[in-house]
Each structure stands twice: as C-alpha cells, then as structure tokens.
Design a protein around this nucleic acid. Structure first.
Length: 309
DNA sequence: CACTTGACCTGTCCGC
DNA sequence: TGCGGACAGGTCAAGT
C-alpha cells in the first residue's frame, strides 16, 4: 500500500502525537510482524521515551531514548494508528470522526467513506499494540503480514541492507534532473516503469505514482529506458516530484487499506489522472479511455493516445 | 551482472 | 450462495 506520500503523512501525524510519550507496555502476536525477543523488548522498549519520528524511503523510524529505534515497513497493508486515552465526547481536534449534535461519535459500518479505525482497535489485524504511560495506544495493523516492525539499535539502522542500497529521496534538493537521469540510465534494458519502481534507482515511488508520473510525462510505461530521450526523462523527473508533493498535500492515496496516524483516509486518489481510472476519459483526450494493462508484473494504467511506446 | 518472475499473506471481487 | 481464480499500493530470493 503505502508509498512515499503515505509514509510521509503517517510520519507527520505521528510526530505530533507520540513524541515525548513513554512506552509502558507492548503486545505482539506474530514473529514475522515483530521478531524481537522479549528480553530486548523489556530492556529497550519498556520505559523508553519517543524522541522523534523519521522517514527514509518507505520506511518509518521511531527513535527512542534508549538509543534503540522501532523501524517499520508497512509494505502493502500495514497501518500505524494512534488512539488517545479515552474516546469521550470531547476528543482531540482533527480526529476526522463525524459527530452528532451531542458531540458523540457516530458509528459507521465497515467501508463507509467516513469510517475510522479509531475506537475499533485492536482488531484481528493488529500485530503490535504499544501502550504509552498515559494510556494512549499506537497500533500496528497489517492484514497481509508482509509488513514488519523491529526494534534495533539506532546506530545500526544505516547498516541494514535496504538502507545501504536504497536510492536518493526524490523530494530532496539534491535530487536534480541530472541525478535522476544518470541513475535511471543504469537500467538501460528494462522498462521505464520497472526502473522508477526500483528502490535502488530512487526511493519512494510505487505503483500509483509510477503510473501517475508516467502519464504526466507522456511516456508509455513499457518503453525501454534506452529509447527515451533526456528531455522526456527530465519531464518525468519533474512529474515524479509533482505527484509526490501533490499527494502529500492531499494526505496520500487511499485505494483500499491506507489510513494516516489518526485512522483517517487520504484523498489523492480523487485527483489521480490514470490510476484506477480504467474506462474513464483521459484528462488530455476526453475521447480516449484510460486502459489497464500489465507492465513490470504490475497493474498499469495509461492513455493509449498520449503514451505511446 | 542485469533483469524477470514468483513467493510471501489475507481479503475481496468477479464470473460461472 | 458457493466456489475457483485473479488481483491488490512492496520487497526479496531464486531463476534465466
């Protein structure tokens, strides 16, 4: 599920919600989702204070006062949701929950657009339940169990294989068109979609923003990198930064599972031009319909008129 | 080495 | 309704 904008949105939300809190207890039920031994959990997690929340690529890092960190990858269906102490009538602002005249929370059935997970957790997808000393909770939910949360010394994070190999942050000032073109050209013989999905080329782009940026740059996702001009790649660089920034502004994309730190959905999907728009008109060519095909083993959306191989 | 394909899981949706 | 198969936003390992 979550790509860079979704993870960034969770990071920003969590920063304002858990920094300064002290961990009091931790529950976990699946070694794939949370592999650490109990002894380490007790020693480095219990009584630890949250110092800061960071993001690198699609990975979240919660730094603790014990010089340990929680490193989290949400993969396809992971969620990190904070729930304040008591769900009383007067809740913290911005929770996204609808309320009736008496300021009580309204109940919604599953799938309602205004539905929220807050008040329903933990549930059967909860893999880790962190309780803070003020009785608030941070839940790590993950339906498909692809994601993970692990406790490790802060200083060792950079030595993880993933961090040693991962490419530059696409929204950093250093990530110029020149840098992008140099890196993407190392993947001469593959398709441009596979190249920008490759986290060692650049960090953070997943299936949604790959399709969205390729449409923006008018490049067919199956085009071989060697067949694309520098001018087109320069345009793609700009589009990648544009769609990522726009999505962060909209709180990310909720296609199925994604929710932010308050259990609320993102709205980028409402602004998408091609992703999940198969059968809808292309914004540039209202007479042409967006099609869905398969490129780089992934569902791929494109306009057959403005994106030619 | 560069590149592609399946595996990891659970849930949902679609066609029969 | 039930059942089988395809598919879902990400990475890896194993294959060519």
């Amino acid at each position: 599920m979550p790509e860079l904008p979704e993870v960034e949105t969770v990071k920003r939300g969590l920063s304002g919600l858990i920094v300064g809190k002290t961990i009091a207890a931790v529950d976990h039920n699946n070694p794939k989702s949370f592999p650490n031994a109990e002894a380490d959990v007790r020693q480095f997690l219990y009584s630890a204070k949250v110092l800061q929340v960071r993001r690198r690529a699609k990975v979240l890092i919660i730094d603790l006062s014990t010089n340990y960190s929680l490193v989290i990858h949400l993969k396809m269906t992971g969620q990190l949701v904070f729930v304040a102490e008591q769900q009383t009538g007067l809740r913290a602002q911005g929770s996204g929950l609808s309320k009736d005249r008496n300021n009580r929370r309204l109940r919604f059935g599953a799938g309602h657009p205004n539905d929220s997970l807050v008040g329903k957790l933990p549930d059967k997808s909860t893999r880790v339940n962190i309780e803070f000393s003020d009785k608030s909770h941070l839940f790590f939910n993950d339906q498909r169990k692809f994601g993970w949360m692990r406790l490790m010394p802060t200083i060792e994070i950079e030595n993880l294989d993933f961090f040693k190999k991962v490419g530059p942050e696409p929204l950093s000032d250093d990530f110029t068109a020149k840098v992008f073109i140099e890196r993407v050209r190392k993947r001469v013989n593959t398709t441009i979609k596979a190249a920008i999905l490759d986290q060692t080329v650049l960090a953070g782009v997943g299936n949604i923003y790959a399709d969205e940026s390729l449409w923006g740059a008018k490049i067919h996702p199956a085009t071989r990198v060697r067949d694309i001009t520098d001018a087109r790649l320069k345009s793609l660089h700009k589009e990648i930064r544009y769609v990522l920034n726009l999505s962060i502004e909209k709180g990310g994309s909720t296609d199925r599972n994604y929710v932010n730190a308050e259990g609320k959905k993102g709205s980028y999907i409402n602004f998408a031009r091609v992703f999940r728009k198969e059968g809808k008109p292309c914004p540039r060519h209202p007479d042409t319909l967006i099609i869905k095909t398969r490129v780089a083993g992934r569902g791929t959306h494109l306009c057959p008129v403005c994106q030619k191989v």
